[in-house]
Computed example of a mutant assay.
Amino acid sequence: MKKPTLNLSRRTFLSQSTKATLALGIGSSVFGSAFLAACSGGSGEEEKIMLSTGFEQTPLGYDYAALEPHIDAMTMEIHHTKHAAGYAKNLADAAAEESVDISKPLEDVLMNISKYSTKMRNNAGGHYNHEFFWKTMSPDGGGKPEGELAEAINASFGSFEEFVTEFENAGKTRFGSGWAWLVLDKNQMLAVGSTPNQDNPLMDVSDFQGVPLMGIDVWEHAYYLKYMNDRGGYIGNWWNVINWNAVAERFDALK
C-alpha cells in the first residue's frame, strides 16, 4: 500500500513557521534572557526593583487629579480602583489556581504565557500593563527625552517628531481595545507597535515583541469620560504627562 504524502504548501509552511517563531517569544533570545535575569535580581537589586513587576497592585504615585487637565481625576480613580484593581484580584485567583510562584517576577509568567490559561493571559497582562502605565506618567511630565534615549529615538525614527507620529498612529489604528508601545526588541533596537486587549510585547504569543519602554492604554475606559470617542485627542494630550525620566532610566537599565 502506497504511503500518503504530506502536501505542505509554501503558504501553510510559512504560516506554521511564523507561529512557531512567535511561540518562542523574546524570552528565547539572549537579550530576553538577560532581561528576565535582571528582573529576578541577577544583575543587582537596583535593576530588579526598576524592571520587575509583582503580583499585587501598588499605590498610585500621585493623586487622581494630578494629571489634570490632560487626564481627569474621575477617569484616573475609576481606572485605578476598579479596572486595574480587578485585574490584580483576578490575577491572584489565577495564580492560586495554576500554582504560580508569586515570589518570582510577573515577567516570567508573561514571557511564557502560552503555557497558561486565558484567564491568566488576560489578567496578568492587564495587571502588568497598568502597573507599567502609572509609572510612565507624572504630573511633572511632558517635554522631550534627552541624552542617550533621545539619540536612540532619532537614530531609529529619524526625529522625535517622526517617532511621535508613528507612536500615535499605532495607538489610533489599533482596532478595538489595546495598547501602543515603544519597545527595545531582541536586537536592542527601538520599535513601535501595538497589541490587542491586555496583551503586551513580553508575551510569547504576541506578534509584536520586545521589552516595553513606554506604553499607552487605548481602551475606552482610559479616556472616554473626558474625550468621548476622540482617541486621537487623548493620545495627543498624553505627551504632556509622559515621564521621560522614568523611560530613560528603564532604557539605561536595559542597555
Rank of each mutant, 00 (worst) to 15 (best):
L6I: 15
R11S: 14
L14S: 13
Q16M: 14
A20D: 06
G25C: 07
G27A: 12
S28D: 11
S29V: 09
S33I: 01
F35K: 04
A38M: 06
S43Y: 10
E45T: 12
E45N: 07
E47D: 13
K48C: 13
I49P: 03
I49D: 13
T53R: 10
T53A: 13
T53N: 13
G54C: 06
G54I: 01
F55A: 04
E56P: 02
Q57T: 09
P59M: 00
D63W: 00
Y64H: 11
E68G: 05
H70T: 13
D72N: 15
I78Y: 15
H79M: 12
T81F: 05
H83I: 12
G86V: 06
A92R: 15
A92G: 15
A94D: 07
E98C: 04
D101N: 13
D101H: 01
D101G: 00
D101M: 01
E107N: 07
L110A: 09
K115L: 06
Y116V: 04
Y116D: 05
S117T: 11
N123H: 14
N123G: 06
G125N: 06
E131P: 02
E131L: 06
T136I: 15
M137V: 11
S138E: 10
G141Q: 03
G147C: 07
E148R: 01
E148H: 00
G158D: 09
F160Y: 12
E161P: 02
V164P: 00
E168G: 02
N169P: 00
K172A: 15
K172I: 15
W181D: 08
V183K: 09
K186Q: 11
L190A: 05
S194V: 04
S194W: 00
N197M: 12
D204E: 08
V205M: 14
Q209V: 12
G210D: 11
M214D: 06
I216Q: 09
E220H: 04
Y227N: 06
Y227K: 04
N229A: 09
G233I: 07
G236S: 15
N237V: 04
W239R: 06
N243Y: 03
W244A: 00
N245Q: 11
A248N: 05
K255L: 04
K255G: 05
